[in-house]
Design a protein around this nucleic acid. Structure first.
Lengths: 228, 228
DNA sequence: GACGCTATCGACGGACTGTCGAACGAGTCA
DNA sequence: TGACTCGTTCGACAGTCCGTCGATAGCGTC
């Protein structure tokens, strides 16, 4: 009796929403394992829009998917594993969106950076509940922490490359190491978007947050600081 | 049988470390309630340097303080209440440090903002374990979330006032609402320091983080962004 | 010396977790 | 046809943690 995990993640890694394989007409008496899996994932995403991750038990997920608690463990090793699978999907989506955005030609730096920030913003806004759960689970699950570290590390490295390019072509002045700046700016985006989505703590309102973020990015990358 | 909480928080609010009242020589047979309280708090702070908040049980705290688990509940309503008490102390310390820093005259803007950021940084660095626990508990406890919201809100408002003053005296150019900028910059500091302290995810190293943060603040407050 | 306040703990009930082992249905192969 | 496997399911168990109730014990005090 081996858990199906791992396979699940690979499955979703290569999957695009709405592209499920065929068994549309014929049906076996019992729903298939894949249906169960999807039911668990759907239940998780639905419940997360209603209450925080910590208030959702394995039993909730199992009942929501129409199975018993032990059966849940046949599909996923834990509640965190479900979240991880869900996040893999969002990450894939974000990567695709970033790629698309980077292919379009930009009118100028402001336009280019605005698109970069907007892409990031829209991707997570589209999965607001998941984003909040992600932040919550980062404390409790090492795997989720690692996934996050990888994603935000990639993101920061990509931005650093872009900053260096701007410096190389003379559009941006020299300054602190580009990677350090990129890390700080992406950290700011992460934290600011979390605050805006969750609504606790001081936050810039949802309508204006991208423009203000953009302004901070532009001033940081293209501006210079005064000498005392 | 009423829990002592609330009183506890007031007690610590007005307390400075090392200023305990007198019974140094004489001793009652049983350690007093205040001793127990302090023992619990000390145990919590010690254990937090060894493992994350989620890995510490009420039983751990009780045993560490030399009492049984039910007795723990005589002193604190929950594990989170202990953390809240600890955090109140750090917040008081941070407020005092900020006040001290704001009284010194600064040589110029760079020097002034550096001191502001350094104060914030040093205060939390001095209680690294607590800072990480704080972030962890923000998901699970509404009270801790509110304390955090209050503290970081105050902090952002104070910075906004300073930015407006710089604009008023002509040292800083106009730009987005000062409070929005202040919220983003303080969010950046918060997230960046957490990353630097915890070491997971991309982070600027501890030696350099204040200088790079400072550069982002200065460019954002005093710089201008290019038109496309 | 009876009363009340502070402090203490054993024991309980409840929520949740993760696992073990039995069982059941569907396909396959002798 | 029966036996054997494999994927799937769940009841039941053991374990951890939590928060509470009720009994009790010392200390001050009126």
């Amino acid at each position: 009796m081996v858990s199906r995990n791992g396979c699940v993640r690979l499955f979703f890694g290569g999957d695009r929403p709405g592209e499920r394989s065929l068994p549309r007409g014929r049906r076996t008496a019992r729903p298939s394992g894949d249906d169960r899996e999807l039911a668990i994932l759907a239940t998780a995403e639905r419940l997360l829009t209603e209450k925080p991750l910590s208030a959702i038990s394995v039993d909730d997920l199992a009942r929501g998917a129409g199975i018993s608690r032990p059966t849940f463990y046949f599909y996923f090793a834990s509640k965190d594993a479900v979240l991880l699978t869900l996040l893999d999907r969002v990450v894939a989506e974000a990567d695709a969106a970033t790629l698309d955005a980077s292919l379009l030609p930009a009118a100028g730096p402001r336009e280019g950076w605005r698109r970069t920030i907007t892409t990031y913003y829209e991707t997570f806004r589209a999965h607001r509940a998941l984003t909040l759960a992600w932040a919550e689970a980062r404390s409790s699950s090492a795997e989720i922490r690692e996934l996050w570290a990888r994603v935000s590390g990639d993101w920061a490295r990509r931005c650093a490359v872009a900053i260096e390019a701007e410096r190389a072509r003379g559009a941006a002045p020299p300054g602190p190491p580009a990677l350090d700046l990129a890390i700080l700016l992406t950290s700011m985006n992460e934290r600011a978007l979390y605050a805006t989505f969750s609504g606790d703590g001081p936050a810039v309102d949802e309508a204006g947050v991208v423009e203000v973020l953009l302004e901070v990015w532009l001033r940081t990358i293209y501006g210079v600081s005064p000498a005392d």
